[in-house]
């Protein structure tokens, strides 16, 4: 894979909700900046009205930016992650 082919992909919230970077308070974060992720790998959870949705990576690649702190609400369409596509 050459530098020129690298592409940044935004992962946006499809609805407003509370952003969780880990499955339970005592667990580690799903991913950190620099984590190599596979397509469909879980990046975070979003809780809206007591329903949890998995936020998955849309591509194979590397997490380059995480915009939201753990347990902070996000708005509809807000960018949560940037993934550098492999």
């Amino acid at each position: 894979m050459t530098e020129a082919k690298k592409k940044l992909v935004e992962v946006k919230a499809k609805m407003s909700g509370v952003f969780y970077r880990k499955p339970a308070p005592e667990e580690p974060f799903y991913v950190e900046v620099g984590t190599i992720v596979k397509k469909k790998q879980i990046l975070a959870l979003l809780e809206t009205m007591k329903v949890f949705q998995k936020i998955k990576s849309p591509v194979n690649g590397k997490v380059v930016e995480i915009f939201i702190e753990n347990e902070i609400p996000v708005k509809d369409d807000e960018v949560m992650f940037i993934i550098e596509k492999e």
């Binding site: 499809k14 949705q53 998995k54 936020i55 591509v59």
Partner: peptide, 9 residues
């Protein structure tokens, strides 16, 4: 699968 946002890029 209990996820809702499963449409792939």
């Amino acid at each position: 699968d209990d996820d809702y946002d499963d449409d792939d890029e």
